[in-house]
Amino acid sequence: MKIKEGFLLRTVAGSNIVVPIGEGSIDFSGVITLNEVGAFLWKILEQPADKAALLEKLTAEYDVDANTASQDIDAFLAKLREANLLDD
């Protein structure tokens, strides 16, 4: 899976935000704000990645057990799907 084309992740005054550009701005006109972990996962998902890869990178970067990390990833992916931001 991968984040759809047409979104830009940037840090603005300390906040991680995602804004639609080009094609992305046709269907989605809001702004998404991400916490640190959300931005970390988003960046990985700008290239195709599966859940195992996300889990591996998240546990390598943060001091978090695999179980909690897995739940966090599931919750984040569910939000992305709900907002129709993922290409599966």
């Binding site: 830009l8 940037r10 603005v12 935000i17 804004v19 550009i21 080009g22 701005s25 006109s29």
Partner: peptide, 12 residues
Amino acid sequence: RPHEASQMNKLL
């Protein structure tokens, strides 16, 4: 809201 990435980056 700019739609082009380059202009959006300038706004940000």
